Structures are given as structure tokens and as C-alpha cells.
Simulated scan of single mutants.
Amino acid sequence: MINKFIHFVQIVTNIMMALLTIIVSFEVVSRYFLNMPIKQTGELVALIFPWMAFLAAIIVTKDNGHFFVSYFRNKLPEKAQIVSVFITKLIMLYFSVYMIISSFQLINISTTQKLPVLQISKAWLHYSITVAFIGITLIIVYQLYLIIAKKDLALEED
């Protein structure tokens, strides 16, 4: 189930990256070669990029690609390594839940504000934070379950 979710997120992230590349390339050609800048491209990029970056954070969390001081952890006995990873995941979980709550507050503040050119709510930009941290929270809860169930020692964070 988690792997299917991550696969879906990877597909969406890849599509967003392709869209960004096309939009920026089109804007460069339009602005510098045709001397006709397109005003919507700046806001489209500003809208799509955070979605892509925050969704990619879900993948990074699943792959344990985040920063972790493994040198010191690897010097610990195996049980202490497991405890270290578990505590790290709990801290990450706390931060993720905090970000979800904070992003809802941000959305409430920005719902009535509109992007000047596209004329859509700025909340669409901030939903990317909520969606990403809900996904990150689900991944971390799953990883904690694996540690508790001893199905995965989660020592592969390097």
C-alpha cells in the first residue's frame, strides 16, 4: 500500500517537474526570442514548484533520504541504534503534525487572498504543505510501526 502511494507521488512529482520545465522554457523563448513575456508563467511556476518540492519530501521521507548523523549512531550498540532511530522518528512525527496544524492555520488566513494574475486563492499554494505533511506523517507512522513490530530495524537511513 505504501509503495503504491509513493509510486503515485513519484508520478505526480515527475509530471510537475515536466510542467515546470515546459512552462519555464516557453517563457524564456517567449520573452527573449519573441519579446512577448507571458504574465501567467511566473505565478504558475510559483504555484507548481512548492507542490513539487513538498511532494518530493514525502519520497525523501520514505527513502530515509533526510539528514541523519549516522556516523555517531553506527558507533552505538544495535539496541541503542534502534532506540535512536525510534526517537528520531518520533521527533519527525511531532514536527509533521505541527506542520499540518500550522498549514491549516495558514490556509484559513490566505483563503480570501488571491494571486494577482491567476485570480485563484493563495490557499492553493498552501495546501501543498498540508498534503505533503499528511503524507510524511503517514510514512513516519508506518516506519514506527515497522520498528515496533521488529519487521524492519530501520537502520538503513544512511
Rank of each mutant, 00 (worst) to 15 (best):
1 M>P: 09
3 N>K: 15
4 K>V: 00
5 F>D: 01
7 H>T: 14
7 H>Q: 15
9 V>Y: 06
12 V>K: 09
12 V>A: 13
12 V>Y: 04
14 N>M: 06
16 M>F: 15
17 M>N: 13
17 M>D: 07
18 A>P: 06
18 A>R: 01
20 L>P: 11
20 L>I: 12
20 L>E: 03
21 T>C: 14
24 V>N: 01
24 V>W: 09
26 F>Q: 00
26 F>V: 00
28 V>A: 13
28 V>I: 14
28 V>P: 07
30 S>V: 08
32 Y>E: 05
32 Y>K: 04
34 L>V: 08
37 P>K: 02
37 P>T: 04
37 P>Y: 02
38 I>H: 09
41 T>S: 14
43 E>D: 05
43 E>N: 08
48 I>Y: 12
50 P>H: 09
52 M>Q: 10
55 L>F: 12
57 A>Q: 07
57 A>F: 13
58 I>H: 04
60 V>F: 09
62 K>C: 06
64 N>Q: 14
65 G>Q: 05
71 Y>T: 15
71 Y>A: 15
72 F>G: 02
75 K>C: 15
77 P>C: 09
81 Q>W: 11
81 Q>V: 11
82 I>Y: 02
89 K>T: 01
92 M>A: 14
94 Y>H: 09
95 F>I: 13
99 M>C: 05
99 M>D: 04
100 I>E: 05
100 I>M: 14
101 I>L: 11
103 S>N: 03
107 I>K: 03
107 I>Y: 03
108 N>F: 00
109 I>K: 14
110 S>D: 06
111 T>A: 05
112 T>I: 06
114 K>G: 02
114 K>T: 08
114 K>W: 00
118 L>W: 12
121 S>N: 10
122 K>W: 04
126 H>S: 08
126 H>G: 01
126 H>A: 02
127 Y>G: 06
128 S>R: 06
130 T>D: 01
131 V>W: 01
132 A>V: 11
132 A>S: 15
136 I>P: 06
137 T>K: 10
138 L>E: 02
144 L>N: 05
144 L>D: 03
145 Y>F: 14
145 Y>K: 14
147 I>P: 08
150 K>P: 08
150 K>Y: 01
150 K>D: 12
152 D>Y: 01
153 L>Y: 03
156 E>W: 06
157 E>K: 13
158 D>A: 08
